[in-house]
Amino acid sequence: MSGDNLLQLRGVTKSYLTRSREEIHALADVTLDVERERFLAVVGPTGCGKTTLLRLIAGLEVPDQGTIEIGLTPKKTASPCAYLTQEHSLFPWLPVRKNIEIPMIVRGVYPQSARRMAEEVAASLGLGDYLGLYPHELSGGLQQRTAMARLLTTEASVWLMDEPFSSLDEKTRHALQHLLLDIQKQRRITVIFVTHTIDEAVYLADQVLVLSANPGRIVGSFQLSSPKPRNRMSEDFGFRIEQVRQIIERVLA
């Protein structure tokens, strides 16, 4: 592992067979370096290996070829990665409080400290009034807020986020994007964020990767250096979005 790289992917390849015995090349020879504390967004058409990429990094799946290295010593048995999806991340049988406490319970944190910590995190995310409610009693936005609170109580330093805000309305989505940027700054975590919305990628990321579908390859990479939070109305913002859109269109054509 060299330099400041937290994550190194070398020639990672992964294929699936569909039900009709058709081979899908979700990822083909993907090589990627992610620096510490970076915010990487991954965009691309549906069916490209965005989700597969996250699952491989999380260790939930094993690549057919290639290597994935994470430059962190894992703490005990817990993964250095936390994984958040669009839905079904929370345990519906537990109230918000316990959902937030779960990572600490598993780590063996003393129950009273876990309780206090959960309350602090919930308060800081505006969930203080909802601790006793169950996930199905919450709106989609509050559910994802709770899921983020749970990520905060893990010790993971890499957050793998798979279209976490896709099913939310625009206002809620913008609020959570802002929250995520704050968290990233404070906690100094590395984020790999999959989205199908270019606007979201350009708003959040330090680097945007464009992935093609079947075979899934990296077909574009942009560095975005303007300071955050970014102004969606600015000329630069519009220019960047157009740039990414053109690449995607070229890939799809």
Binding site: A58, L60, A82, Y83, F91, K98, P103, R107
Partner: peptide, 27 residues
């Protein structure tokens, strides 16, 4: 039981007892 719930516990490093107590039994 949803695979994603099992994966969540796996990433948290949960052992058998925690999996049983917090996921399998209540579910």
């Amino acid at each position: 039981l949803r695979i994603s719930h099992l994966e969540t516990m796996h990433l948290l490093g949960a052992g058998r007892w925690h999996l049983l107590r917090w996921v399998i039994i209540p579910y």
